[in-house]
Write a protein that binds this DNA or RNA. Structure first.
Length: 406
DNA sequence: TATACCGGGCTCTGCCATCCCG
DNA sequence: CGGGATGGCAGAGCCCGGTATA
């Protein structure tokens, strides 16, 4: 029997399917009354429980009854979607399929505040499409009360200074705005982040760039700050408060990353680049901060790739380390991008040593590199003699220089 | 005056897993 | 046990221009 019940269990999800299953089963039972009851069941799905009970009474075989009861219980345990709510959301233009996929539980709720949310957001300048998009992407937004919205908006507005700015961030990341219902925690976060030394302008930037930071529990943000504090003290740095503030303002995404990731990246940088404590601190206060939120595996992968390719081109370990140390953002480059750029540059007769001396040329996009190299070659520019510095110029500077070379 | 050096701008949400509470 | 709250993860560069310096 256990082997027979399993497929039924698996298929018991959507209501219509449940009814189908019962119907199929009823057919198997070949009992007219039961089939009739099951037919009613499809017509009056809202009252299906009592109909099922009615059907149950028609079964006299204890085994059949028991089997039937198990399925009834399974169906009863699954709360149904609130059809009225689903209809209302559909009328509002909400992508209900998307909402169902993201937070199915919300569609089953009897009390929601979609009307209040719509009024509230429209009052702040949102149009219907924006509201529908927000609900589609973060359905739980409709469970927030007017009072909650008012309070949260007030705090966000206090930081971003205008409704349109709050709306812009909310539109970009509804989850950041709506995910937590804990207003006290939000207040604690603002207080904590200010106490770290962030100015109101920096706080606003943080909210625009990494709004999730404000939805974190304050303790989580504190843990990251504590970690950075300990790290700095452990590395023998002075003025720890300034260091922490500097790192956070350099990389606003840091507070929305896990400590594990940040820690792994820092440890990797120190080991891979064979850095002393002092060098590590310098790196972190410079370009290194940018890298800390990168997925750790990619940092490792990209470093291994850079090393592999440069060694193959005859560079030494020391040269590789020095190269990355001078310009750590190179670790952003995926293996393909890195090798494409190196190939493109070397193909034009530029020596690898010239790249080692000017790591920032790899900062330039592959298309820009290709176009510039070919334009310069066309006018007989000698990279070996005249250098590759102009490859990394800004557009205006490059064009000005190019004109003069003609 | 031209180039080197360097900091900073842009941007990073949407999904899944897990915990915890009612 | 369901669902809300929260944590954590993947993703994979390019460009500009101010100031110092040769």
């Amino acid at each position: 029997m256990g082997t027979r019940t399993l497929p039924f269990r698996k298929r018991l999800c959507p209501v219509s399917r449940q009814h189908q299953v019962i119907m199929t089963w009823c057919l198997k039972m070949a009992r007219r009354e039961l089939m009739q009851a099951a037919g009613n069941l499809l017509l009056y799905s809202g009252k299906y429980t009592c109909l099922l009970r009615l059907a149950e009474h028609k079964l006299h075989n204890p085994l059949q009854r028991r089997f039937f009861c198990i399925h009834v219980q399974l169906i009863e345990k699954q709360p149904k979607e609130n059809c009225n709510l689903v209809n209302r959301l559909e009328n509002m233009g909400v992508d209900v399929c998307m909402a169902r996929k993201r937070q199915p539980g919300v569609l089953k709720k009897m009390i929601t505040h979609e009307k209040g949310l719509t009024d509230f957001l429209q009052d702040k300048g949102a149009n219907k499409n924006l509201v529908a998009s927000v609900i589609s992407r973060y359905p739980r937004s409709i469970t927030r009360t007017h009072e909650h919205l008012e309070k949260k908006w007030e705090i966000w507005h206090g930081i971003l200074k205008s409704d349109s700015e709050v709306l812009k961030v909310l539109e970009r990341s509804p989850e950041s705005f709506f995910r937590s219902s804990n207003i006290a925690n939000l207040e604690k976060n603002v207080e904590f982040l200010s106490s770290v030394g962030l100015t109101s302008k920096q706080l606003a930037r943080l909210m625009v760039k990494a709004p999730r930071t404000f939805a974190n529990r304050m303790e989580l943000n504190q843990q990251m700050v504590d970690y950075l504090n300990d790290l700095h003290v452990g590395l023998g740095g002075e003025n720890t408060t300034e260091f922490v503030k500097q790192i956070i303002t350099k990389n606003m995404f840091l507070l929305s990353q896990s400590i594990t990731r940040v820690k792994a990246n820092i440890e990797f940088l120190q080991t891979a680049l064979k850095l002393s404590n002092r060098e590590l601190l310098l790196l972190l206060q410079g370009y290194g901060a940018d890298l800390l939120d990168l997925c750790h595996d990619y940092v490792k992968l990209n470093f291994r790739n850079i090393k592999f390719q440069l060694l193959a081109l005859g560079c030494t370990d020391e040269q590789v380390i020095h190269f990355v140390f001078r310009y750590p953002p190179l670790l952003y480059l995926s293996p393909n991008t890195f090798s494409d750029k190196i190939d493109c540059i070397l193909k034009s007769g530029i020596h690898i040593q010239q790249i080692l001396d000017k790591p920032r040329v790899l900062d330039v996009g592959i298309n820009t590199l290709t176009t510039r190299i070919s334009r310069l070659q066309d006018i007989g520019y000698n990279f070996q003699k005249d250098g590759i510095g102009l490859l990394e110029f800004s557009k205006t500077r490059f064009e000005a220089k190019f004109k003069k070379l003609l």
